[in-house]
């Protein structure tokens, strides 16, 4: 099993869902992002997604867009993302990179896979790469035993869910809504149904992302998913804190603790399913 699969299985053995936290690299600075992610690890995240800032993030809502924009304006490079991965991986928590495809292709797919492996990274989540276009990445990921996490959506047909899941390693990423990243007041009614459809077609764990902002919502999602993925809510803590990054880090830590409690409070629900 890969490190991410192991982390998710460990949570499952505890009778709970895993908590996966996302933050972009290099916002507000490289070191600042490392410190914030370390707070997420200390607060109870089971795995980490490091976002590679990109100029045209079509899957992201305004919150993550702003952070990525500022990271790039601050001069963020692809190598900075790898540096963040290396620092976070040193804590022992599995680290995936969430990236749009062009920066990887530009870096060189095999070279990226090799450097990610060297940095201790566990694999990639690829929001704009579907398996049909992923031949080069699949080959590189297989050569380096990296996780390949592709997305499924409420609009995915059963055939696509089956073929996409068959291409995944680590877990399957279920986008809970038809929409972009960002917190929502109400958790999606589409998500439980989507997860059930995925489960019917694969034994891989299913992570649910898009929209979760607090422990209560995390508990709801943890009731039907193997992993609860939280991104925009963390980014919002840093954006809201502005120049007071220390306060932002504390807010990230507090939110993590709340979310970690949320995924655990759903244990009874999970045990019953």
């Amino acid at each position: 099993m890969t490190p991410v699969a192991t982390a998710l299985a460990s949570a499952r053995n505890d009778g709970r869902a895993a908590l996966v936290g996302y933050l972009p690299a290099a916002y507000p600075s490289v070191d600042g992002s490392i410190a914030a992610i370390q707070a997420m690890v200390e607060g109870g995240c089971d795995a980490i997604e490091v976002g590679l800032p990109y100029s045209d993030p079509v899957m992201d809502g305004p919150t993550i867009q702003r952070a990525a924009e500022r990271a790039l304006a601050g001069g963020a490079r692809t190598s900075d993302t790898l540096r963040v991965v290396e620092a976070v991986a040193a804590t022992g928590v599995p680290v995936l990179v969430m990236t749009y495809w062009n920066p990887v292709e530009r870096y060189g797919v095999e070279r990226f896979a090799a450097d990610l492996t060297a940095a201790g990274g566990a694999g990639l989540i690829t929001p704009d790469l579907v398996p049909e276009e992923a031949g080069e990445w699949v080959a590189a990921a297989d050569a380096h035993a990296l996780d390949k996490v592709f997305l499924v959506a409420p609009s995915s047909t059963p055939e696509r869910i089956a073929s996409t899941a068959a291409s995944c390693r680590g877990f399957v990423y279920a986008t809970s809504v038809m929409g972009v990243t960002g917190t929502r007041d109400v958790t999606s009614t589409l998500a439980p149904e989507l997860v059930a459809r995925v489960r019917a077609l694969t034994d891989l764990p299913v992570g649910v992302g898009l929209g979760v902002r607090d422990g209560q919502q995390a508990a709801e999602v943890a009731g039907f998913a193997d992993a609860v993925i939280v991104g925009s809510a963390f980014v919002a803590q840093l954006l809201d804190a502005g120049a007071d990054h220390a306060a932002g880090i504390e807010a990230v830590r507090t939110l993590t603790v709340d979310l970690a409690a949320g995924v655990r409070s759903a244990a009874g629900v999970r045990a019953a399913t």
């Binding site: 704009d128 592709f150 609009s155 995915s156």
Partner: peptide, 19 residues
């Protein structure tokens, strides 16, 4: 698959593949 030689294709979020 929408390819012109090595160009074209679909590099899109999965949610948009069905549409």
């Amino acid at each position: 698959g929408g390819h012109f030689g090595r160009f074209g294709g679909r590099f899109m979020p999965e949610a948009l593949i069905a549409p």
